[in-house]
């Protein structure tokens, strides 16, 4: 299944770095967006008086 390569460590770590950085490029916008939306929603709730204080 996994090809037997010479210099396997080098090859796999290169592909690993590529995968990690690409994954971060996908995740970063998603996480940021989630945080931003949560904050905006909370702000909106505070303004309209519908804010539920999680720890009163």
């Amino acid at each position: 299944m996994i090809p037997e390569l010479e210099y396997a460590v080098y090859v796999w770590s290169s592909y690993g770095i590529f995968a990690v950085v690409v994954a971060w490029q996908i995740l970063q916008p998603v996480l940021y967006r989630r945080r931003l939306m949560a904050e905006l929603r909370e702000e909106q709730a505070l303004q309209s008086g519908e804010y539920d204080d999680p720890n009163p």
Binding site: L5, E6, Y7, A8, V11, S14
Partner: peptide, 10 residues
């Protein structure tokens, strides 16, 4: 040998 395969991401 196989190290050139790195170049496909590089």
């Amino acid at each position: 040998s196989d190290s050139f395969r790195i170049l496909y991401v590089h």
